[in-house]
Write a protein that binds this DNA or RNA. Sequence first.
DNA 1: CAGTGTGAAATCTTTCACAGCG
DNA 2: CGCTGTGAAAGATTTCACACTG
Lengths: 253, 253
Amino acid sequence: MATGRTHRPATRSRGIPEATVARLPLYLRALTALSERSVPTVSSEELAAAAGVNSAKLRKDFSYLGSYGTRGVGYDVEYLVYQISRELGLTQDWPVVIVGIGNLGAALANYGGFASRGFRVAALIDADPAMAGKPVAGIPVQHSDDLEKIIQDNGVSIGVIATPAGAAQAVCDRLVAAGVTSILNFAPTVLSVPDGVDVRKVDLSIELQILAFHEQRKAGEEAASDGGVPTAAARGESADQGPDGDMPAVMPA
Amino acid sequence: MATGRTHRPATRSRGIPEATVARLPLYLRALTALSERSVPTVSSEELAAAAGVNSAKLRKDFSYLGSYGTRGVGYDVEYLVYQISRELGLTQDWPVVIVGIGNLGAALANYGGFASRGFRVAALIDADPAMAGKPVAGIPVQHSDDLEKIIQDNGVSIGVIATPAGAAQAVCDRLVAAGVTSILNFAPTVLSVPDGVDVRKVDLSIELQILAFHEQRKAGEEAASDGGVPTAAARGESADQGPDGDMPAVMPA
DNA sequence: CAGTGTGAAATCTTTCACAGCG
DNA sequence: CGCTGTGAAAGATTTCACACTG
């Protein structure tokens, strides 16, 4: 399993680098906040600070989208919100199904960040018959027997898998067979999918392990430096946020 | 806000590239599965397939750790599990606190992937007095008034924030003041922290937006290419998985 | 003259391809 | 002989620094 291919030819979708695409949602969130405060324009410096990146990177990112700023002034907030939304495809409606309605699935169903973007939770699906009919976040849970029909009736192309690891691949196969071409996977498994299907993975324990690695490193350096003071701020590591260190890892077709 | 600094000195902790560190947990998971099936050795090709990466990358990654393989044979599973665990700092116990026990916090508390690695949920903290004392995943929820004491009594250095966005920065500040130096943030906000503190972010809506971008692109290309054959393999790309890039994403109640 | 847009340089990451070891 | 380990090439991303414009 695992896709057979050897590597990926740098799927730079249009001309926009993956790294840039991964940051657009970040900018969009910061811009939305500014928009709500009725701020009319921002400079690259200000917006970069709000998004947690540096300004050179931000300007470079925007340069892939076009020239949407005004020299000497900055960017028009509303205009930029629109341009980025369009670029990300958020001006259209994306019906999404969530499969696996445990604590995590319920948390996802309740997450407000969907509707506010172009996402709509079209259905919640679970394999437990006892869940069927129960409303979660105001949406009745449906049984997985009807998965294919639900996907087709709602024209769903994005699926979220929040099942236990053991069920993930089977659910994935059914979603793909039913027409889903993008999957967000929360199960701790490597999913195998045909070409043309995108998978992104979110893995809680992996994130913690990466933190542990750096944490361990800090402890070591501390000891190495001076005597005690386990106070933080020991070494100048700084903190970047966001998709930093590692990188994206998924790809399109 | 947003951390003041301009960027981050490429925290290549020892000699291990960030991109490699981000993949070690992936290898570890695959190796653990092999170990459970009592498989004694694996080749880079097999392990790479199981982890969803290509073998050249895997070999290069391992080369940063040392020469743990045997030419002509492969890698000893148990030995590699140990080496990677040690490198990631998982041979020691990491007490973790989760702040914000909504659906997401509960999902995290119940997540089995923690205990199996070196993580131990030392405490669950919530601001709602009504939650206090209630057991979640067998652990009684404590009120946030006692946050500092809990951190100190348990020697916690890693904190997980699963609160609503509005509360995240305040919680973060208290965690840091109490001695936490690594934070996993599920709230959709850019946290501002002093140097020396690591923050990793997981944001569900960002992941979906990235998928939407590629999904939109697919729709366009399909129409553009030829008439039919929506069979995969259209464009030659494949699906890589893993922490890719940036990462992550989820949200709170 | 403040602040964008962008070539060019510096870095980091991935991939190739093969020498060499068990 | 098979498979690891790794220089070197190729590619992607980030950062610099400054010309240029509103």
